[in-house]
Amino acid sequence: MNSAFILSLLKGLWGTIVLSLLTFLFGGLIGFVIALARISPIAAVSRAAAAYIEITQGLPLLVLMGLCFYGPSIFGYDSFSPLAAATFALTLYASAYLGEIWRGCIQAVAKPQWEAAECLGFTRWQRMRAVILPQALRIAIPPTVGFMVQIVKNTSIASLVVGYAELSYNAKIINNATFQPFLYFGIAALMYFAICYPLSVQSRALERKLNVGHR
């Protein structure tokens, strides 16, 4: 074991964290729009959102990475940097899943709440903003935290097609030099575990806590 290798793994860990945060930020923004589009009363909008979710969830993340990495240069843009391409692909991926999760949460708000808001003469946006979304947020927190685990794990795929240097990429490089797979992939796995496990535990705890009213 060599301190330079450990340093390199830590650097990779930082790359993983940066990519995860960017993905969560952009994926969350677009996912929110998708969730709203999915429950839109305009059939075309809701069907378009459904198709987006269906297609994105039916593609392996690796294929999305490839499309996002090689696609922009074809349409006349300069080639994306590995980080930009990875963020782009993971954003598509995360937005489809988050959109579907949040749609469920919005629709899980009890029906009388929607009706009451309507009776009070709220407009559609007022109803969403003041009545439905605050309650949906409460339902949405546990599954969203749970999905963060998926995001962190899936950033590892950014090391393949686009070659973004994150934790598993650096671990692979070190393994190529030392050929001690159990040691270095083991440490890398523990680092992922150190991020993901607390999130999983938190998600379950929040579910128990926020679910009190439904028990």
């Binding site: 393949l160 001690q180 797979p181 796995a189």
Partner: peptide, 19 residues
């Protein structure tokens, strides 16, 4: 398993068994 990426598990097992 649920809190680590499949890619790292695959590296660990496949390269590990080979080593």
């Amino acid at each position: 398993i649920r809190n680590t990426p499949l890619l790292v598990q695959a590296y660990f097992l496949i390269f590990g068994i080979a080593s």
